[in-house]
């Protein structure tokens, strides 16, 4: 399966990738994007089965990316990986159509719980 990872921090993308491997999701193809606008392009190009996105990013935030996708009629499963995991943010994410919110700092178990149903 193909997964797009959008985060403006290259280091954080590396950590997300490492944690995905530790959570047992090593055998998927990961495509990286450095902001929301780039993620939109990569998603159009690759047609992934899942998008993992940061919330705060330049050139289109994560929530703007999700809304843009849904406005295009794209229903790709979408989850946030963000340092802000407040109930309000979770509500906003859910209303926009996100499947889950993983809060930073995270552990492999958080990815196992959230992604198990999507990637297994």
């Amino acid at each position: 399966m193909k997964v797009v990872i959008a985060d403006d921090s290259r280091v954080m993308r590396q950590i997300v990738l490492r944690t995905l491997r530790q959570a047992g999701f090593a055998h998927h193809e990961y495509v990286e994007a450095a902001d929301g606008a780039e993620a939109l392009e990569r998603i159009a190009e690759h047609g992934p089965e899942l998008v993992l996105s940061d919330w705060n990013m330049p050139n289109k935030t994560g929530i703007e990316l999700l809304r843009a996708l849904r406005a295009q009629g794209n229903t790709v499963p979408f989850g946030f990986v963000t340092s802000e995991g407040s109930p309000e943010m979770r509500d906003v994410a859910a209303q926009a159509g996100a499947l889950f919110v993983i809060a930073k700092p995270f552990t492999p178990e958080a990815f196992e719980d959230a992604l198990g149903a999507v990637l297994s």
Binding site: V11, S83, K104
Partner: peptide
Amino acid sequence: DAVGEVVNVVGG
């Protein structure tokens, strides 16, 4: 980038 992310996660 790394220390920026540390402070970002603390801030969040």
